[in-house]
Amino acid sequence: MTGIITIVVLVLAVITALQLMRVFELSSKARKQVEYEVTDRDNNYQGWLMLLFGIAMIVSLFWMLYAWLPLTLPKPASEHGVEIDSLFKISMWVIIAMFLLVQPILFYLAWRYRGAKDRKAAYYEHNNRLEFIWTIVPAIILAVLIIYGMTTWSNVMSPKNEKEPIVVEVYAQQFKWIIRYAGEDNKLGYANVRLIKDANVVGVDTLDLLSADDKVASEIHLPVGRPVLFRFRSQDVIHSAYMPHFRAQMNCVPGMTTQFQFTPSVTTADIRQDANVQAKVARINALRTEKGLESYAYDYLLLCNKVCGSGHFNMQMNIVVESEEEYAKWLAEQKTIAETL
């Protein structure tokens, strides 16, 4: 029944539109006006609309910055994250400034030079000096950003360590994460998917002596202020280990090992005290109470950021950053591979 009604409504809508068109055509014929020709009145209307749009666009940009910037990620919880954020802020200032320069000019000019029958445009083909300026100025700005970006990148990707990093393996499979700590020797034992059997879920080679003290866990705990070297593997398809609060991400690629290193700088307990984070949690909890959902406490997260199948949207793990002592205590409670297999 609804189907028939929908079809009837659609047919009526088309007929109405056709009739309106007829009326339109006849009336413009009566006025001896050719519909498709752009009149001064059109130019005036459209010119003003362009100007209005330009203004509305700038206003809504500021509104969005005001309303939605607080919803973006809070301050970074890693040492290199601070560097990335400052590069981000500078780049953002540059592009917002360019946006605020170019867009208003575009819409202003569209309005200012809206056509009129009695006007003639200027014949102005080129100006080498102007063109030189707007080639060279962006080039200089970009040179600065490129150099700054490349320095940051190399600092992030090849950090200089004062302390030896803790080695942690992040193992991805559809649709969950498994964590393996390197244990006392801080060296991961050899592992391969071919060795996966029963409880040996990440395929550790039990004959490799390095593997005996490795520990498999279902949550990530990290000590604050110690560099952590993550080594990523995948069992099936490409996943991406995304840790947004630490400004860290690396793909997990089957058949190879990738890595990323960072130093957590704020404990979970401390970040929960941060004013912005508290405001965020309060907003979220207000929404959750409304919907009758359980209340939420802020946690660092590891999530999958490369489409990996139907469960991609719910492939997550908590990350806890804590003091060196708490971390040591937690790690001591985890069983070694030698104990579990």
Binding site: V38, G47, I105, L109, Y113, A121, A122, Y124, L130
Partner: peptide, 12 residues
């Protein structure tokens, strides 16, 4: 943008 400048813009 410079092409618009001092033009006689016909808003088709």
């Amino acid at each position: 943008i410079t092409t618009l400048w001092k033009g006689n813009i016909q808003f088709t």
